[in-house]
Design a binder for these strands. Structure first.
Lengths: 334, 334
DNA sequence: TCGGTGTAGTACATCGGTGTAGAAAGAATG
DNA sequence: CATTCTTTCTACACCGATGTACTACACCGA
């Protein structure tokens, strides 16, 4: 059996509550006693039982991060950033993946594990605005991503509109006039794809450049493989385009692969740009022009907000947008 | 305040214990009573308090996965596989990252969260054989990786020796005779780097090819950036090599970048091979020849072992090696 | 009729901490 | 000297579930 507070108390010759007080930095403890207790803790290798503490105090020191999958570098890097940010608050992160499945995302909201965590960072991909009522109004939670808006929770977003416009403008500035769009989701009115798609159209309109509707290709799961497939799809229909804007970096990297396989040169024949600025974008061949949504900022902001809510802050819910940054690399300029 | 078992019991007109019995599928319950209780649970939206259950039963349904970082795709993909494997057993995964820092890896072993998890999947990078005594002998744990051997725990390993030999033999078979080694750690006697380095030497010896000691370059953190730097290092010293074996894929991808920057062609001038078979290896330009250590197998094996131990199995500790697979791609053959 | 077995449910203690109230001792105040 | 305050520590109940032990009843066979 594990060592308990009782054991420590006996060993130190004090009451269990005094041990508890020492552990929780209760101010009125004689230095001598504190040392005695700490020594006993050390001697016996005592560790608090979080479950017991939780039962009484209601706190676990754990927050959950719910996201689609870690295989996607964007989410992996976001998770790393969130873990680091949580660590600064002394919190541990429990990661749950949903594969972007709506049902699994919904159950993640009501898991019994809900009792085990103090708060939730929630990044759904399968939900939609109609699920807004499923969001918990009482337990602390911060929403990430673009599937639901104006929910009863704090929300940290990527600056999709301005970020997308910046990269599309950049392509237009390079003289590209036939920019294919990779990864669109024609059936969806909401979500990241729809928002970026609209911004892509708006950027065209600002420049008075006709929107090449026929160059929009849907791209499934936004993996590398979908990027390559979508690209090959497009090639089978037309060669009449001089740039590709992929809705995320993995799509773009898959596309680069497919373009190279056609024997075409990037950016000379076709310029390619993505979105996310994953680590890989800086080391691909060619390096990838992309928008950095500022993961570190997002993670830190989200965790800070969550911590505030966990602390009982009930002020108005916030909707925050992280500042983006455009990184111009080889795939669009030579 | 949340709904408790008492509330449900009162609502259903039974004792709290009966509610507990219903929830735990205790066989001797009248169908009528069961329905009454389930209805009450539904009515009140009751969810068990895991902490309370844990306190009494000692089980949480959560396992921890300790690894260096998620930004490294190898670990991210391993984590995904582990989460999936754990899910099949109804377990949730709590991920903890250590940045390969020895101290943080050691504290991860004794965190208070230790009470919160039923078992531990542990993948250290900073520890060494001298830390073998720090491993817990009592709580269920499965060791991953190559930093410690013959510990008091189960151990699932990559087939580093045969995997490395296979890829080096492949390079030699292609007629390459001056194979640079990227990412070596000269100061370390143990660990993945040392094992793969030795296997690289052995493969040379099997073929009677002299080992080009001067072509071994150390590579820090095994990131893309370190790969590029190491490669540039090497170029600044010599051009007398016709292949590069990078000790992992991210190093290899960084190296590919640096080689391309020199205006050299892959594999014509220099062949490149890696280790890990991350998703990216299949979509890089050129695609990367590499060894697949079989993450899915590793994750599933490790979780299965852990579940057995959590179930109280105290049989002899196992050391298992996952079967590797060599993937030959463009970076070594044209 | 009696005892044995199986079914259905309950009472109570308990897991390991922490909040609350308060006791004991000495210091400060009037 | 009595009173109040401060510091230090303790006793006890309780968080919410579950294991153990027990009651009660029905049914069976002898």
């Amino acid at each position: 059996m594990a060592v308990t507070m009782r054991d420590v108390a006996r060993h130190a010759g004090v009451s269990p509550k005094t041990v508890s007080n020492v552990m929780n930095d209760y101010p009125y403890i004689r230095e001598e006693t504190r040392i005695k207790v700490l020594a006993a803790i050390d001697d016996l290798g005592y560790r608090v039982n979080i479950s017991a503490r939780t039962l009484k105090s209601g706190r676990t020191g754990v927050i959950a991060l719910v996201l689609p999958e870690l295989s996607n570098p964007y989410f992996a890097e976001l998770a790393d950033a969130a873990i680091a940010a949580a660590g600064e608050h002394g919190l541990t992160v429990m990661i749950e993946t949903t594969n972007a499945d709506r049902q699994r995302e919904l159950t993640a909201l009501s898991r019994p594990g809900g009792h085990l965590v103090d708060g939730l960072l929630y990044s759904p991909l399968g939900l939609g605005q109609e699920d807004v009522d499923a969001l918990p109004t009482r337990s602390p939670m911060v929403l990430l991503g673009e599937r639901i808006f104006h929910g009863p929770v704090d929300h940290v977003m990527i600056d999709n509109v301005e970020g997308t416009k910046a990269v599309v403008r950049h392509l237009l500035d390079q003289g590209r006039r036939r920019i294919a769009l990779l990864g669109s989701k024609p059936t969806e009115q909401i979500g990241t794809a729809a928002i970026r798609h609209r911004a892509y159209i708006e950027a065209h309109e600002e420049y008075g450049v006709p929107v090449p509707e026929e160059l929009a290709v849907s791209g499934g799961q936004w993996h590398r493989s979908s990027g390559a497939e979508a690209m090959n799809d497009l090639f089978s229909r037309t060669q009449d385009f001089d740039a590709v804007f992929a809705l995320n970096d993995t799509l773009a990297l898959g596309a680069i692969r497919a373009i190279a396989a056609q024997g075409l040169r990037i950016p000379h024949d076709i310029a390619v740009a993505g979105f996310d600025n994953i680590d890989e974008a800086e080391y691909s061949t060619p390096t990838l022009t992309t928008v950095d949504p500022n993961r570190v900022h997002i993670a830190r902001t989200a965790v800070d907000l969550l911590v505030r809510r966990m602390g009982g802050d009930t002020s108005e819910h916030e909707e925050l947008v992280a500042p983006y940054e455009l990184h111009v690399r080889e795939s669009t300029v030579s």
